[in-house]
Design a protein around this nucleic acid. Structure first.
Lengths: 352, 352
DNA sequence: TTGTACGCGTTATCAC
DNA sequence: GTGATAACGCGTACAA
């Protein structure tokens, strides 16, 4: 009742009159065989149509070459691109990825982790934020988190503070009369909180009149739009005839804000300067390309896997030295000036 | 030199004075034990902090519960959302997914497939289009493809023909003077070719003046924009003062087209009616929400996994009956009317 | 350079 | 209802 038997090292051994061991060595340490014997085995593999079985190898030597990934969703461009970049590291590191989409429920995510553990993953990359890092650390498994609370585990994050500084400085360079930061309520433990501090830091340093608007925008376009209308109305009411520098915490939200302005005025009014965050596709695809702060997703993904691989390698040593304290890597973001701040630029379409 | 030994069935057996077999049964067929014995073992698991090892189970019974996925990229919203939905099926089917990002090179993708095979995946879902379905069929593995050439393997696709019909009919209902379909050069074997046929079919049926513009737009926003300017200029030149119904093969492209119009005229001119394809986020996030044809990505993903699971289950029977010919499932798309066609609608922002 | 013998942790088979 | 034993396919001391 089983699938037709696979060709195994035993079969190859019999076929070539070598021992299993020699066949194994052919794969793991070919130089220890004579060239002619390598040839013989190589030929046998073709003759018998051998297919390697890494599951058996795992059981024998304990190395699965699996890394688990727990990611909140793939709707958000940031996450899908991060996953994209992480998966690409297969080319460099050779690790395979078992991916689970977290659903926001801690208990379900715990089950996912148990499942990953059952498959003997060698390390875990976590982007979800529902399980405290303390608990993650207790798994005693190499772990790297990305853009989430990371007190007790290694992590790679964007330098959000610097991002806030970059965005705010750009607005400041345009001599706005008032500086507005629009964000969702954010916990201080989350790296993204740094954006707020960056904003405040520049405003205070330069003694700029400023204001932070916290608002729960929701996840659907409609609810974001509805809430953003409130924000816009509030700005119109409170700061008429003032040059407003608006730093919005995501490109998606910034785009909604921009669209509202365009729909009202047919173009971006001269008293609005706008910067988003993420350099997501929408920031280029918007009617008026949006200035934004970009995260080096490729670098973050690469550093995360690298940091994880280092931990995994350390573990395989005869006398592993555990990290004394978690390593936190920080990647500097980049500023992109587009038309929502550099208004002299003219879009090519108007030329023709 | 190995990681500290795991607790195994043997340990549990000794601890409880049962045999390994009984412990195994506790997991796979608990009803065959007395309730009290279940209790004893259950307690032992906690006492010893047992962690299950599915790798060993795989070796013993051959069922990895792995499905391989080969997907071209995750930049494209269609792919990332499809992956999202596929991964979600874990809740229902319990299969784990090993994901590889295809890179467009057939040989590399072949290596990925070999790697997946080495991990004894039970089935394969393919969205990449560089390896012919004939070759895939020769793997003798349950396979389902999505939106690609699928002559020799099972597949789940959107009814692209119907999508083309829906889009064109919507434009026709607005009594346009001329009907334009903008697309990239597409091979007839690819399901998406159906959109073209759908367009032509309606145009011919209703004797509508029509035209198809094929253009290689490239992948960057700039190149799409540059090429789209050509398209727009051509339309302006050839069909001045005519009501133009434009059906563009993707929302991304449609959005670029729309932006060009807005940038030129400050609003969507009354002689343009526009429909995109995919119902991707950009179609709602655009300055003027774009009418579009949506693919039921959730259904497609679900059907794909289901179709795959059926094949995998069949294979596990004592006397598997292979499919006589590949099953091709087709999912009907849905039409979404938004402001690029329903121009009487007024956006809420203008009210306030 | 090559072979022997055993271990990896579970499931399947066949007894009792 | 329970147990003994042989797979599953490969890696690895240790021996030759």
């Amino acid at each position: 009742m089983r699938r037709k038997k696979n060709v195994t090292f035993d079969d190859i051994a019999k076929y070539t009159n070598f021992s299993k061991t020699t066949i194994s060595r052919y794969f793991n340490n070919p130089d220890s065989l004579t060239l002619e014997n390598q040839e013989i085995i190589s030929k046998a593999l073709v003759d018998l149509d051998y297919k390697e079985n890494k599951v058996a190898r795992i059981l024998a030597n304990g190395n699965t070459e699996f890394i688990g990934i727990l990611i909140p969703n793939l709707h958000n461009h940031y996450y899908s691109e991060m996953l994209n970049q992480i998966l690409q590291t297969y080319e460099q590191f050779g690790y395979k990825f078992l991916v689970f989409i977290g659903n926001g429920h801690a208990d379900t995510e715990r089950q996912y982790i148990q499942e990953l553990l059952a498959y003997k993953i060698e390390g875990l990359i976590i982007l979800s934020d529902v399980i405290p890092s303390k608990e993650l650390a207790d798994l005693h498994l190499p772990i790297v988190t990305i853009e989430r609370e990371d007190q007790y585990v290694c992590s790679v994050n964007t330098d959000n503070y610097m991002g806030g500084v970059q965005a705010t400085s750009l607005l400041a360079s345009h001599n706005c009369d008032v500086f507005i930061h629009v964000n969702s309520p954010t916990a201080p433990e989350v790296p993204a909180y740094g954006r707020i501090n960056g904003f405040l830091s520049i405003c205070k340093e330069k003694k700029l009149p400023h204001r932070i608007i916290y608002k729960e925008f929701g996840n659907t376009y409609d609810s974001i739009r509805t809430n953003m209308i409130d924000v816009l109305n509030e700005l119109e009411r409170n700061y008429p005839n003032q040059k407003k520098g608006v730093f919005i915490s995501s490109d998606t939200h910034a785009n909604v804000f921009l669209n509202l302005l365009i729909q009202r005025y047919g173009s971006l009014p001269s008293d609005y300067y706008l910067v988003g965050f993420d350099d997501s596709p929408i920031s280029t695809e918007a009617v008026i390309p949006i200035s934004t702060v970009g995260q080096h997703i490729d670098q973050i993904a690469h550093e995360a896997v690298k940091l994880l691989v280092e931990q995994m390698n350390e573990r395989k040593k005869r006398k592993p030295i555990p990290l004394e304290k978690p390593i936190h890597k920080v990647i500097t973001p980049y500023l992109i000036r587009r038309e929502t701040t550099e208004k002299t630029k003219v879009s090519a379409a108007t030329d023709c």
